[in-house]
Design a protein around this nucleic acid. Structure first.
Lengths: 354, 354
DNA sequence: CTGAAAGCGCTTACAG
DNA sequence: CTGAAAGCGCTTACAG
């Protein structure tokens, strides 16, 4: 059995004694109760006693009494995904404004009985949940079953369903990437997309398609894959596209991690980026400038996505209503680096099939 | 003000009523109180009622009563560092054995007043703390001041100080990497090391040195840097080593993220890896096989590091004593990929200075 | 074998 | 303007 976690520490009662008032007054002063009228004199005595005893309130007691924990959870498929770093900061900053602590976890095993989600959301652990589902598990209905009464916000989610959701403008990101390449003279464009059941993949594909249509170009189905956002799926996608009859001169890669795989697959196949193939990836993380060639990407408002998710969650917890928010500010913007080139260019060496 | 977080839910009392016993019995049955004698009959009734009402205990009440929260925190400088993924799994698995939940956070701003560490460790939030300090802030004394009574385990920390600590065998990792290269015929080896104030960097440098000495080779100070574990520090380290009078034929890179920077700096400088320069990096993450060339690395017992940290912490919480553990099982092992070559080799093209 | 009761540290109507 | 008291949902000596 574990022992008590710390030595005796100041309680409200101790503060009250030292200040010569009742616990009620101390509690009210600390919580700035608007109904409280105290002499400034008294208030100062209380505050001084709090400082001298180094009082901080006991969360367990507070949670029990108020029926809320003061914590929210942020669950994502993979905490080590660099994109996620910014999301976390956004959530934390917005949560801190309301004195909420953020618990970070993995959104795994939603099918199993004894999963992280249920364990975290057992009575009294957290007041609300921001969750990004795994791409392979895009049916949020599971959550309804798992946590019928938990205020929940789906992240990276466009559909308007039973739960609140926040998303970034994935369509615009892909449109921007594609038209950037088109403006460079490319007219043979491919898309390395995400899993088709995810709403981000659908949106990115739609945006890509719109850019081509706007430019009077045609989508080539054999240049479009829907395999996911991981390096190995990027690798496989590249392999498939390279086996097409004709080849594109440029690719929009729907995710930067997939682009890492594309880049290394290209190298393995002796194809030079950007000389023979231009690449633009969505999302801008540290790897973009530390890989060779440095990747041209679309930078997205990821910090704001996190902050918005937290603010939406707080409102859901507050009034139980439902929100669907698309974060567009700041707008997606090109981070221009070294993985693209104009087309056609002098001395350009097209990919020739043997 | 936030509203109560969920609709009325079964309490101990509800279970007791339904089972026709007192709350004491229900509580004791659920906690398998060894002093409890109940008729099997009664126990079954209780268990059935628990199931029917879908009872789970209220954490806040439990925490208040038991004076412990059932949660521990894991704080690391950067949650998106891929090395950390395995640590997290290890900690979670070991913690789950004791029904402890793991809160994940960033170990930042230890100097500031209002930091994550203090906020998390306010009364009753967590029972203990596993922390990996930022490399730039290697004085754990700050923790003593910040959290005098919090059971704490330092991770990736070798020194025997006031706090418990767990580490992997960093010296052996570097020794293994260096002797792997030496066995390949290299005798001009450099080390791209971590910040000198960190104990991991000291250990890796020591292990590297020992391999050279064992082989009768000399350390070349101009081939050794101590700039850190990030891609940009790796880039800078490469630049410095390349400005030396003579050049090494192989490098041990003390961290895989730094190796990513080294690789791209090498490419920028027109140096072929592995043809002109062999690279072995410590730590084995997804990037190793998705970068080009795939990196030869040393795989470390990172999952076990996390699990051990949690087990040590649990013992510290239990009996207040202090432990210093070096995790050596499984032993560091080479993950052989494509960033190294024998030396000298037929047709080898050494790096020549212009 | 089982139950009544105290108390963990808070907040908040209610009373004065 | 301030305080006494109830009660949030548990656990656990103690009594029977």
């Amino acid at each position: 059995m574990l022992q008590p976690m710390m030595k005796p520490v100041a309680r409200l009662r101790d503060v009250a004694e030292r200040a010569g008032v009742s616990v009620s007054v101390v509690s009210r002063v600390l919580n700035s109760d608007p109904n409280l009228r105290v002499r400034e004199d008294t208030r100062q005595r209380v505050l001084r006693a709090v400082g001298e005893l180094n009082y901080t309130h006991n969360h367990a007691a507070r949670a029990l009494r108020l029926r809320r924990s003061g914590a929210i959870a942020l669950l994502v498929p993979d905490v080590t995904n660099a994109i996620f770093s910014e999301i976390f900061r956004g959530v934390e900053d917005a949560a801190a404004e309301q004195d909420l602590v953020v618990l970070l976890g993995r959104s795994e095993w939603l099918d199993e009985k004894n999963n992280v989600v249920s364990r975290l959301s057992q009575q009294g652990r957290i007041d609300g949940l921001i969750i990004q589902l795994r791409d392979e598990e895009p049916s949020p209905h599971i959550l309804d079953l798992l946590l019928p009464d938990m205020p929940t916000v789906l992240m990276h989610w466009h559909q308007r369903g039973g739960l609140s959701s926040v998303a970034i403008d994935d369509a615009e990101a892909a449109r921007l990437a594609a038209s950037f390449l088109i403006d460079l003279g490319h007219h043979s464009l491919g898309l390395i997309g995400g899993l088709p059941q995810t709403s981000t993949a659908q949106a990115r594909e739609a945006g890509f398609g719109r850019a081509l249509i706007d430019a009077g170009l045609k989508c080539q189905p054999e240049w479009m894959t829907r395999l996911g956002y991981t390096p190995s799926s990027g690798r496989e996608a590249f392999r498939r596209i390279m086996s097409a009859t004709h080849l594109p001169t440029a690719l929009v890669v729907a995710n930067i991690n997939a682009a890492v795989g594309v880049l290394s697959a290209a190298r393995d196949n002796g194809i030079e980026v950007p000389e023979q193939l231009s690449l633009v990836a969505i999302h801008d993380t540290w790897i973009a400038e530390h890989i060779s060639p440095p990747l041209t990407t679309v930078r997205m408002p990821i910090y704001e996505l996190g902050a918005t998710a937290a603010r939406v969650l707080i409102r859901v917890m507050d009034n139980g209503s439902k929100y669907h928010v698309l974060v567009r500010d700041p707008a997606p913007v090109m981070a221009v680096r070294g993985s693209h080139m104009p087309f056609p260019r002098a001395g350009a060496c097209l990919i020739s099939r043997q």
